[in-house]
Amino acid sequence: MLDFSKNYFELFGLPVGYIVDKTQLAERYRELQRVVHPDRFANAPEQERRISMQGTVRINEAYNTLKDPIERARYMLSLNGIEMDAQQETTRDSAFLMEQLELREELEAARDKPDPYAAIADLMTDINKRISSMVGQMAVQFETPTPEQLESAREILRKMQFLQKFRYDAESLEAELDEAL
């Protein structure tokens, strides 16, 4: 088993921080997989194969967490002692919530547009822009986080979760349209 006392950043030999060099992260990921992946142990005894499998599972989990801005924020909060319950917590920012309602209505309306795919794609572009700008705000909170900044990071994450859910629903709608083809 890999050293579980190490956090994901340490595992990848990267500094703990919200801004991550994607190319470097991907390179480190491949370097680690070269050493740990079960295919490197195809001829090894059972025990080594098991340990290699556990190590790879952890590396995959770490990689998935660090490469995704939303998962990464959640993880950074937990490193700072804040465990967020994705199911329960929601933002109370009413202006943001109104906007979300409008976006949802637009998504529903996309279904009946002459080119529903293009309408969905436009909405997705919009959502991705919003996420990018939140990623920027998030990075500022994590520079040298005070308790207040961690609280605002938490609030940004609550909003990001909305956008993530929206993206998921938009993809589901696309899949639904695909199936009707």
């Binding site: 088993m1 890999l2 595992l11 740990v36 059972e46 025990q47 080594e48 190590g55």
Partner: peptide, 26 residues
């Protein structure tokens, strides 16, 4: 034997991971 050596196998895995990560700069 496997049970006896588990700590050693894990130590080796970690040592290999360290080797893979050390000496690499961007």
């Amino acid at each position: 034997l496997e049970k006896h050596c588990e700590f050693y196998v894990e130590r080796r895995m970690n040592s290999n991971v360290r080797k893979a990560m050390s000496g690499h700069s961007v």
